[in-house]
Each structure stands twice: as structure tokens, then as C-alpha cells.
């Protein structure tokens, strides 16, 4: 036993590893650990922010799962949002990245143009703008009227039947970040491999499927995982544009969590919701990580390339 621990201590990787993660680890301990455990504690309390938390055991969790229709609604809305928007955005970002990676005239200008919506993010101005684009008398509806002669009088973002769909479309439209990461990944693929395949007479589709995709898989994996996590945590887009309305049609999980915490002053309940989300997302993410050995190709594990 003693010998193994000594061996363990003599492992140079131990020191190198901890030296490299030291800044991050220090930050975790100093800035994150207390807030994280404090919120875990709060999830078992009744805490209205203004007075001391009261321990109530599992009451918050019990209420969530047995007596809160809005919680159920927020789960449904969020699941639908994630299920549709994450794969769509991923495919879209990948397709555009692959396109922009080709030698098209003005590719550099195009990259900037395509990234713009993401740059503009969620500023006040953008909110007003979306209303103008997809409002009743917005640009989209008048476009449909003048080009196709279709009369539409739907306020896309605020109508109960289209609000969630519009938010999903918006999230797909802001694919810039994922696209940029894909582009960076594409650039890392050695041109020599693709050239070799080209010489062998492989078709473009074949090259993309057999060379590009496998070599890009670590980055696809990243975008998928972050897409899932980000999707479940979606907040600002909804908060800014719809505030969860009309009548809870876009009540994302975190919007409801925030509403509980800072509007209704049920911070304990909000914290409990946060930890339920953490549990659910971590299970899902763990499954994705598990599946990665089937489809993600890492150079560093020693597998040889395609």
C-alpha cells in the first residue's frame, strides 16, 4: 500500500497535470465552490432572499413534481425547443461552414456577414428589430404579400401558436458561433489527406463523409454537447423577446426558474429547479459522452486516421 502511494507520488504526470490545471482549479475553489454548494443547500429551503433560509427538506422537489402545472409546462416547452433547435442549428452551422470553407468568391466577406447576427446578440436594438421583421406589418409578412401574394396577419413572435416556432427559428438563425467553431475545425484537417483522396478519384460527397466528418467529429461532438447544455439553459432569447408568453407558450425552464427566484421570491424553489436541471442534463450529457466512442474520432487516443 505504501509502495503504491509512493509510486503514485512519483508520477511526473501528477505534478505536470495539476500545474497546468492550477489556475482553473484555484478559481473553482475560490469563486465557484461556495456559490454552488450554497445553491444546493438553498434547494432544500424556503428562501425569499430578504430573510434567512428555512430548511424544509424535500418540499420544493415534491411540489415541483406533484403540484406545479407551470413547471410541467416549462419542461415540455424546453424539451421541444431542444429537440428541434439543437439538431437544426448544428446541421445548418455545419452546412454553412462547409460551404464557406470552399473556394467561393468573397468567402471572407461572406463569413463576416453570416456571423453578424450572432455578433449583434441580444442587445435592446435587436429586440425592437425582431418585432419589425416578424410583426404583423413586419418585413416578412409584407415580403410574402408582395412576392407570393399571400396575406398573412400573424404576429409571429407573439402569437400563441407560432411563438415557440419563431424562437426556434431565431436560435437557428444565430448559428454563427457554432459555424465559427466548425470553420476552425475544418481548417485543422490536413489538406494533404483530402488531396490524396482527390487523386484517388473520390467524389466530394465521399471525401466529406469519409475524411472530413470523422476528422471533424471532436468538434461536432463539442458543438453537440454545448448545444444540448445551452439549449436546456436557454434564457435571454425568450426573456427578451417573449418573457415566456403569450400565456406560457414559451416558458423555458430557466425563465420559470428565474421568475420563481427573482420575481416571486422563491429562491429556494428556483435553486431546486436548477439542481433538477443539472441532474437531467448531466445524465443526458453522460449518455452523449458514452456514445462518443462509437462516432468520435480522436487522434490523441492513437487511432489511425481514415
Amino acid at each position: 500500500m505504501k509502495r503504491t502511494s509512493k509510486q503514485w507520488l512519483r508520477n511526473p504526470d501528477l505534478y505536470a497535470g495539476y500545474a497546468f490545471i492550477f489556475p482553473w482549479l484555484l478559481g473553482l475553489f475560490v469563486f465557484s465552490l461556495f456559490p454552488i454548494f450554497f445553491s444546493l443547500y438553498l434547494s432544500f429551503t424556503d428562501y425569499d432572499i430578504l430573510s434567512a433560509p428555512q430548511w424544509i427538506g424535500f418540499e420544493n422537489f415534491k411540489e415541483m413534481f406533484t403540484d406545479d402545472p407551470r413547471f410541467v409546462k416549462s419542461v415540455k416547452v424546453t424539451l421541444l425547443y431542444v429537440a428541434v433547435s439543437v439538431p437544426l442549428r448544428l446541421c445548418f452551422a455545419l452546412a454553412v461552414a462547409a460551404l464557406l470553407n470552399m473556394k467561393i468568391k468573397g468567402a471572407r466577406a461572406l463569413r463576416s456577414l453570416y456571423y453578424l447576427p450572432t455578433l449583434m446578440g441580444g442587445s435592446v436594438a435587436v429586440i425592437v428589430m425582431w418585432g419589425q421583421l416578424f410583426g404583423i406589418n413586419g418585413a416578412f409578412n409584407s415580403f410574402m404579400r408582395s412576392i407570393f401574394g399571400i396575406e398573412i396577419s400573424i404576429s409571429w413572435i407573439t402569437d400563441p401558436s407560432t411563438a415557440l416556432g419563431s424562437l426556434i427559428a431565431l436560435s437557428v438563425w444565430q448559428f454563427g458561433s457554432a459555424m465559427l467553431i466548425f470553420l476552425a475545425g475544418l481548417k485543422q484537417i490536413p489538406a494533404s489527406l483530402l488531396e490524396a483522396a482527390l487523386v484517388d478519384g473520390a467524389s466530394a460527397a465521399y471525401r466529406f463523409r469519409r475524411i472530413t466528418l470523422p476528422l471533424l467529429s471532436p468538434v461536432i461532438f463539442f458543438n453537440l454537447v454545448m448545444g444540448i447544455i445551452g439549449g436546456f439553459k436557454v434564457f435571454s432569447e425568450g426573456m427578451i423577446l417573449t418573457g415566456g408568453g403569450p400565456h406560457d407558450q414559451t416558458l423555458f425552464y430557466v425563465i420559470y426558474l428565474y421568475e420563481n427566484s427573482f420575481r416571486f421570491l422563491h429562491m429556494g424553489y428556483g435553486s431546486a429547479m436548477a439542481w433538477v436541471l443539472l441532474l437531467a442534463v448531466s445524465i443526458l450529457t453522460a449518455l452523449v459522452f458514452r456514445s462518443s466512442s462509437l462516432w468520435v474520432h480522436y487522434e490523441s487516443k492513437g487511432e489511425r486516421g481514415a
Binding site: S32, F34, F38, L42, F235, F262, T285
Partner: peptide, 18 residues
Amino acid sequence: MLTLMLPSEVLIIPQYML
């Protein structure tokens, strides 16, 4: 990875305290 999954909204109060 876990720190990525916890909604930051519930960390606001303790972080401010810190």
C-alpha cells in the same frame, strides 16, 4: 462539465455575497 450545466441564475446571490 457540471459547472457548465448549473443555471447561473441561482449562483448570483452567493457570488455577490462572496
